[in-house]
Simulated assay, not measured.
Amino acid sequence: MSPLDDDTDDIETEVQVPQTEARLEVALTADDAGERLDKILAARFESLSRARLQALIADGRLSLDGRALTDGSQKARPGLYQLQIPEPIAAEPSPEDIPLSILYEDAHLIVVDKPPGMAAHPAPGNYTGTLVHALLHHCRGSLSGVGGVARPGIVHRLDKETSGVMVAAKTDAAHQGLSALFSTHDIDRLYIALTRGAPHPDRATIQTQLGRSPHDRKKMAILKSGGREAITHYRVEDVFGPADKPLAARVACRLETGRTHQIRVHLASRSTPCLGDPVYGASQPAAAVKVLIESLGFSRQALHAAVLGFVHPITGETLRFETPLPADMAGLEAGLKAL
């Protein structure tokens, strides 16, 4: 099992480098109508994989008679289809001089406090400005290559819009050792979430099977069968608003496993998603909370990886790192307390 499949992070794909011209065109006829669009176009655009084609369509780069299409699963219709191909991206990320908040560093690993808005590694939509780019500059050649050229040193990930503590490996031995710890869940991971309402009871364990949603492949979902076991222990630390009907809450979530989007899905399953979550926060928060969020310009899921603890894979030293809420979440919490 790869530790990169065992973490709370964005559903991301490897960087794919198009090796083709800037624009492709194909005219479909009435005989083609009714076929699934991405399937028939993949057969026509032989230079592109179907996965690459689907990503380009989702990114709005396909048009039919000049009108943009974003759903590759729809049925094909007659007309002229044009596919815009972005400029090729370097297969290997280049170092970028991006400031890092470093909590710990030695010859084997580095621990940082990742800000919200920074992706962990290059992926479609995030080809620059990632943690990998910053680490390549800071570490200057001493970053483990086990993770591959697109994500050297990365052992686990956080969502792009989730802030908090991350560890990266500078040597292959450290990478393998940290990977083993994540695979066996021998990692102390505590997250702080600000939620819509408050989960009930105020302390519990959520244990489910988690996998990709059968309805939306970009989302994760609780499954009745299949998927992978996901366990989150949560505790309500504070509630905001009326005690009998809280408007919001501060919830500490300790991970026993770490599946993709685990905390976000589990909290949403209790009808208490992270405030600001654009994917799993289906309905609006209370009016006062909504006004507060809009006034602060808070536009991400309110989730922070506050604690990361582990045994150093090389020295055997017990390490534990804890960071406070970043300014945007701290401001949101202060506003909630004033409600």
Score class of each variant (00 low, 15 high):
residue 8 T to D: 15
residue 8 T to L: 11
residue 8 T to H: 15
residue 12 E to S: 15
residue 18 P to Y: 14
residue 20 T to W: 07
residue 26 V to P: 02
residue 30 A to V: 14
residue 31 D to S: 14
residue 32 D to K: 08
residue 37 L to Y: 10
residue 41 L to K: 11
residue 42 A to R: 06
residue 44 R to W: 03
residue 45 F to H: 10
residue 48 L to K: 09
residue 48 L to S: 05
residue 49 S to N: 02
residue 53 L to G: 04
residue 54 Q to L: 13
residue 57 I to F: 08
residue 66 G to R: 11
residue 68 A to V: 15
residue 73 S to R: 14
residue 74 Q to W: 05
residue 78 P to M: 09
residue 80 L to W: 03
residue 83 L to G: 05
residue 85 I to L: 15
residue 86 P to M: 10
residue 94 S to L: 11
residue 95 P to W: 02
residue 96 E to A: 07
residue 97 D to M: 13
residue 99 P to N: 09
residue 100 L to Y: 07
residue 100 L to T: 11
residue 102 I to S: 05
residue 104 Y to I: 04
residue 106 D to S: 10
residue 106 D to I: 06
residue 108 H to A: 09
residue 116 P to Q: 09
residue 118 M to N: 09
residue 118 M to C: 10
residue 121 H to G: 06
residue 123 A to L: 02
residue 124 P to G: 07
residue 132 V to A: 05
residue 137 H to D: 12
residue 138 H to R: 15
residue 140 R to W: 00
residue 144 S to I: 05
residue 146 V to R: 11
residue 146 V to A: 13
residue 158 L to I: 08
residue 159 D to Y: 11
residue 160 K to P: 08
residue 162 T to A: 14
residue 164 G to R: 07
residue 166 M to D: 01
residue 169 A to R: 11
residue 170 K to D: 07
residue 172 D to M: 08
residue 172 D to G: 05
residue 174 A to Q: 07
residue 174 A to M: 09
residue 176 Q to T: 13
residue 190 L to H: 03
residue 193 A to C: 06
residue 193 A to E: 01
residue 195 T to K: 04
residue 200 H to L: 11
residue 202 D to E: 13
residue 203 R to Q: 15
residue 203 R to V: 10
residue 207 Q to V: 07
residue 207 Q to K: 14
residue 208 T to Y: 00
residue 211 G to I: 02
residue 213 S to N: 10
residue 213 S to H: 05
residue 220 M to N: 06
residue 223 L to F: 12
residue 228 R to C: 03
residue 231 I to A: 08
residue 234 Y to W: 03
residue 235 R to A: 14
residue 241 G to N: 02
residue 253 C to F: 04
residue 255 L to E: 03
residue 258 G to F: 12
residue 265 V to L: 05
residue 265 V to H: 05
residue 269 S to K: 01
residue 276 G to M: 01
residue 283 S to Y: 06
residue 289 V to F: 02
residue 290 K to R: 15
residue 294 E to S: 11
residue 296 L to S: 01
residue 298 F to W: 01
residue 301 Q to G: 07
residue 304 H to L: 13
residue 305 A to F: 05
residue 307 V to D: 00
residue 307 V to R: 09
residue 307 V to M: 00
residue 309 G to K: 02
residue 310 F to M: 10
residue 312 H to F: 02
residue 317 E to K: 12
residue 323 T to I: 13
residue 324 P to N: 11
residue 325 L to T: 07
residue 325 L to I: 08
residue 332 L to D: 00
residue 332 L to H: 00
residue 335 G to W: 00
residue 336 L to T: 01
